[in-house]
């Protein structure tokens, strides 16, 4: 009888252990298995420089400044040079919060929010 008892105890324990195996296996972390991680790596694989730049700005004559003249130039003068080709940039920039310091409503009109508006903070 003792022998039988022992066998059943062993079987019961074995069954309980078998059930615990998948628990332990699923807890182990598998490297790089997350689909989100794989997707993100895929999405950002190409270096930005490879993708879009088709002009080497250092070759433009307009941007070759006289080293002596450069010493006294104001930053705005360089910007003026950019705007000769990038002829929409200034108009676009004037519409952004970096220029207006005001938030916009749905129609693009400036609101009271913003550093240039009536916002308050505590710092």
């Amino acid at each position: 009888m003792l022998k039988r008892k022992g066998r059943w105890l062993a079987m019961t324990l074995a069954a309980a252990l078998l059930m615990a195996v998948p628990v332990c296996a699923s807890a182990a972390v598998e490297e790089d298995g997350a689909p989100g991680r794989r997707m993100a790596i895929q999405a950002t694989k190409a270096k930005p420089i490879v993708r879009t730049i088709t002009a080497d700005h250092s070759k433009f004559k307009e941007l070759q400044f006289d080293p002596e003249q450069e010493k006294t130039m104001r930053p705005e003068e360089v910007t003026q040079t950019c705007l000769k080709c990038h002829n929409q940039a200034a108009l676009q920039f004037h519409q952004t919060i970096h220029w207006t310091w005001r938030d916009f409503d749905e129609n693009g009109k400036p609101t009271d929010l913003g550093k240039g508006g009536l916002s308050v903070n505590n710092f």
Binding site: S26, A27, E30, G33, A34, P35, G36, R37, M39, A40, A43, T44
Partner: peptide, 15 residues
């Protein structure tokens, strides 16, 4: 989510 999607973790078990 732009890059990581809506299922950023592995599937299966606690993931």
């Amino acid at each position: 989510e732009s890059c990581h999607g809506m299922q950023p973790h592995k599937s299966g078990g606690m993931d």
